[in-house]
Amino acid sequence: MVDTLLFAIFPYVAVALAIGVGLYRYFSDRFSFSSHSSQFLESRLLYWGSVPWHFAILVVLAAHLLAFLFPTAWGVLAGRPLRLYLLEITGMVLGMTTVIGIALLLLRRAKDARLTAVSTAMDWTVLLLLLVQVATGVWIAFTLRWGSVWYLHTATPWLWSLVKLDPQVQYLAALPWLVKLHAVNAFLLIALFPFSRLVHVVTIPLEYLGRAPQLVIWNRARARR
């Protein structure tokens, strides 16, 4: 019963919220799609938290997505002991990087009074849930090896069953609570996506990649005191 609720019903609720509210917000309040940058208030610790976090989490998410979309190819990739080990250790390194990154971002918000003043309850919620997500992910990678292979035979068929509107909860029901928490928390983050700063995920500033660098030039003399 609980498994049905968590792995057959909640994922649809989460995705419906993400798409429905996300679209509503986009068309009704487009300029609120932002990560509400606090870089102006604090930038040093932000760099150490945000940059490693974003690069590492993008690769980790891409790995989860590729193993879901192309399980056969992923199975071939992990089908040799050396490649499997390198794949796993890379995932662990990136995972630990995300844990350190998000912990720094939490710490940064907690210790700086100016940041605490501009932080909303949802900011804290999202940061904490992200910490739970990456910490459980790393813990799974360390203790339930090798996730890059069993994911193909548990999470992948479960996710595809959700796509086909025929949820097969038994794939998740037999797994340890740690994996269940990781899966439910992932959908919780998807559900919170349109209500939080996570909406910035869809505003990918691709034009920045090819844009000419901006030069800041002061052309006025500063008044002497």
Partner: peptide
């Protein structure tokens, strides 16, 4: 430990 060293390298 291996993963920690790797993360250090990443930083």
């Amino acid at each position: 430990r291996d993963a920690g060293l790797g993360a250090l390298f990443f930083f």
